[in-house]
């Protein structure tokens, strides 16, 4: 017990004993004047508000049980990419996550052009450079090609509010999905 607490305890005990003495009829020369009552009331109010404030800072301490009824949940394939997209929108993790997203999509686009589109690796790299691998300028730009997006499309994109990183990544994934299929603009010319 610290010295201050001990002191406060002493004051409390003295006050209680004095109170009991007054009840028993001993006069201590204290009158219930307005000033005295006001003092006691103010002290009680201040202390009371302090306690209420303390309540606001404490969190209830109670046992939390999990969900034993649910089966163990394992991640979905690709959830790491979704996490990257989320952290690419975050303030602190933005650049690293953005780079991971673009790098991964670029590698997959190249892989798809080689494996599905029947291109040579150098040819695939060149296609990515020029943006000729897809008919979607947003996807082409996302992977580093300097393709200009027509003004009308740009306005439409801006107005639709679908120009975030996640939206552009989604369009790029859709473009990679189309590689090697019937509606592939850079389709096999063999």
């Amino acid at each position: 017990m610290t010295l201050t607490r001990r002191l406060f305890l002493l004051v409390g005990v003295v006050a209680t004993v004095a109170g009991l003495a007054v009840v028993a009829g001993v006069s201590l020369g204290l009158e219930l004047t307005d000033v005295f009552l006001g003092l006691v009331g103010a002290l009680a109010a201040i202390q009371g508000l302090r306690y209420v404030q303390r309540r606001r800072d404490t969190t209830p301490n109670t046992t939390v049980t999990g969900d034993p009824e649910a089966r163990i949940s394992v991640p979905m394939p690709g959830s790491d990419f979704d996490d990257d997209l989320v952290s690419a929108a975050g303030r602190r993790t933005r650049w690293a996550a953005r780079e991971r997203v673009v790098d991964r999509l670029e590698a997959r686009a190249k892989g798809a052009l080689v494996a599905r589109g029947g291109r040579a690796p150098e040819e695939a790299a060149a296609l990515l450079e020029t943006g000729g691998w897809t008919d979607d300028p947003v996807a082409a730009r996302f992977l580093g090609a300097s393709v200009s997006i027509p003004l009308r499309q740009r306005v439409r994109l801006f107005l639709s509010g679908r120009s975030s990183l996640a939206d552009r990544a989604e369009r790029t994934v859709a473009a990679i999905e189309r590689v090697g299929t019937a509606d592939d603009p850079a389709g096999e010319r063999r």
């Binding site: 009552l37 006001g38 006691v40 009331g41 103010a42 002290l43 009680a44 109010a45 202390q47 009371g48 508000l49 302090r50 306690y51 209420v52 404030q53 303390r54 309540r55 606001r56 404490t58 969190t59 209830p60 301490n61 109670t62």
Partner: peptide, 22 residues
């Protein structure tokens, strides 16, 4: 262990008493 469920009640008691005195 204490759940802290009633923490702050002492404050309310004191505030009520102070209001009563005033």
């Amino acid at each position: 262990f204490d759940t802290e469920r009633w923490t702050g009640l002492d404050g309310l008691v004191l505030v009520a008493a102070a209001a009563g005195v005033f």
